[in-house]
């Protein structure tokens, strides 16, 4: 689909003096499942916020030739950058189909918005297959299970035709089976896209990460393959006393 890579260089985000992200650089290429990990407050979400225009950052974040920083949120999205949120946010009132239809709609002309939907877009059907939500077409999104909501969010990114998927804790609160399903899903969709995952679940990270960046207090602590990162003494120190936690895999820490 695309060969463009996401290249973040020297990203800095400040909140009235407090440096949440202080000069972070990393890149992500199509075909890999890129992980961003780090302790609470490390600045992972803030990185994503900056890339997607929700937080104001300096430095640079390029998708191929295009600079993302400084653009408006919806314009960044139109360049093909999609994201999910730490808390599943789908439109509870609308059905799964309606949710997806809205996500698919940004290519439609203004006039066609005034017409009623007839049938289901092929891209939507494909995304439903992909995420295993095909049976829930007419279910209001609000009554989906927690895991299904997160899948719906991913499906929305797929129909939205995002080239870059930034996923903030996509498996938080999922059962083991659901995690595995999600991991496989990410692997599949990463074939043609850039997938960047923020996670706390080390086990999940170990199973599916192709490359990992560890953030700590707004800075990159370590970068490399799962093995590289796990071997890094600095990383073990940060996860102090949790050095084994990394090895053993921590149970999921929180569900906010």
């Amino acid at each position: 689909m695309t060969d463009a890579s996401l290249v973040v260089t020297d990203l800095r985000v400040e909140f009235s003096g407090f440096v949440a992200v202080g000069g972070v650089s990393f890149d992500a290429h199509p075909g890999e499942v890129r992980f961003l990990i780090g302790p609470n407050g490390a600045g992972k979400t803030t990185c994503i916020d900056a890339i997607t225009g929700l937080a104001k950052g300096t430095g640079s974040a390029r998708l191929g030739e295009k600079e993302l920083l400084g653009k408006q949120v919806h314009k960044i999205v139109r360049l093909g950058v999609g994201r999910t949120f730490q808390t599943a946010s789908v439109f509870d009132e609308l059905t799964v189909l309606q949710n997806l239809d809205i996500a698919a709609g940004r290519h439609r002309s203004a006039l066609s918005l005034l017409r009623t939907r007839r049938g289901v877009d092929p891209s939507i059907e494909q995304a439903l297959e992909e995420t295993g939500l095909a049976g829930e077409l007419t279910t209001p999104a609000g009554i989906l299970s927690h895991g299904q909501k997160q899948w719906l969010e991913i499906a929305m990114l797929l129909v939205q035709d995002a080239k870059v998927l930034l996923l903030d804790e996509p498996v938080a609160g999922m059962s083991q089976d659901e995690r595995t399903a999600t991991g496989e899903l990410l692997r599949r969709i990463a074939a043609k896209r850039i997938v960047l995952v923020v996670e706390h679940d080390m086990d999940f990270m170990r199973r599916y990460a192709t490359r990992v960046t560890v953030l700590h207090q707004g800075k990159v602590l370590s970068q490399g393959t799962v093995a590289d990162v796990q071997a890094d003494p600095k990383v073990q120190e940060v996860y102090l006393g949790t050095a084994d936690a990394i090895a053993v895999g921590t149970p999921n820490r929180k569900e906010d």
Partner: peptide, 12 residues
């Protein structure tokens, strides 16, 4: 229901 979310789908 979720204005910000709509923004992140590429609409204004």
């Amino acid at each position: 229901d979720a204005e910000e979310r709509v923004r992140f789908l590429g609409y204004d």
